[in-house]
């Protein structure tokens, strides 16, 4: 974490780029709160050895065992939930995810993932932006499925090539492209009246039927990733 923060603070040619997102602040607060909790516990053991439940020791415990931990709960959970949206989190399942990350980040990549990555439309959160559905329900489903994937990675019970658990619905594309100028000006995308075509809305015509596959993995035919 710290080398990463330091790297970002260095910027490019000394020019400050970015630091201070909600995630970065939360990581910092989580770290500080954890240290404060351990300091309080350590101090209580040193200063109030054998009298932990008496007098001023209870005030120290109030800080270390109640106030700081209660503050830690939201910061820690936010850190975990936000960090799990990051591309580096998804990419940390090396054996199974490496080909997909390599395809996405390849400078000359031709897949949808690569072109979206090059567009920098969701820096750092590319996997999540395309694979998680809209809204709280989409986030919840993505987290649950992610937990299952993590378990499979941990236990080595996944099969190669990996397949998506659920079909890739057009709504995942439409959550960004619906209403976009370049998308709406294409006749095949719209019905008379200038609204998105019903076939696309109802997944009768899939985006990937016409466009390049989401990922292009060497030795893997197009469509191999479709849900089992």
């Amino acid at each position: 974490m710290f080398s990463e923060i330091w790297h970002q603070m260095q910027g490019v040619h000394g020019v400050y780029l970015q630091w201070g997102t909600a995630l970065e602040w939360n990581i910092l607060f989580t770290f500080v709160l954890c240290v404060l909790i351990l300091v309080c516990i350590g101090l209580s053991l040193v200063l109030y050895r054998g009298r932990q439940t008496e007098g001023n020791a209870l005030w120290l415990h109030l800080l270390g065992l109640c106030i700081f931990p209660l503050f830690l709960l939201p910061f820690a959970n936010f850190t975990v939930f936000e960090y799990s949206k990051q591309e580096r989190f998804c990419a940390s399942c090396h054996a199974s995810m490496d080909p997909y990350v390599a395809d996405m980040t390849a400078p000359d990549g031709k897949s949808l993932a690569a072109s979206h990555y090059q567009d920098r439309f969701a820096p750092g959160e590319e996997c999540y932006a395309c694979h998680a559905n809209y809204g709280v329900h989409g986030t919840f489903t993505a987290k649950l499925l992610g937990l299952r994937d993590a378990w499979r990675e941990l236990t080595g019970t996944y099969t190669v090539p990996i397949k998506m658990t659920l079909p890739f619905p057009n709504s995942l594309c439409l959550k960004c492209h619906n209403g976009a100028r370049n998308f709406m000006k294409e006749d095949s995308h719209t019905d008379p009246g200038g609204v998105v075509a019903r076939d696309i809305l109802e997944d009768k015509t899939l985006c990937t039927d016409c466009h390049l596959p989401g990922h292009m993995i060497a030795g893997q035919p197009k469509g191999a990733m479709k849900a089992s």
Binding site: C34, S44, P69, L72
Partner: peptide, 19 residues
């Protein structure tokens, strides 16, 4: 209580340092 919360704090530090 100290063991429970202290262990979470230790894991928390390890977590944010290594991610």
């Amino acid at each position: 209580a100290q063991i429970l919360i202290g262990s979470v704090a230790v894991i928390g530090i390890a977590t944010v340092v290594t991610l």
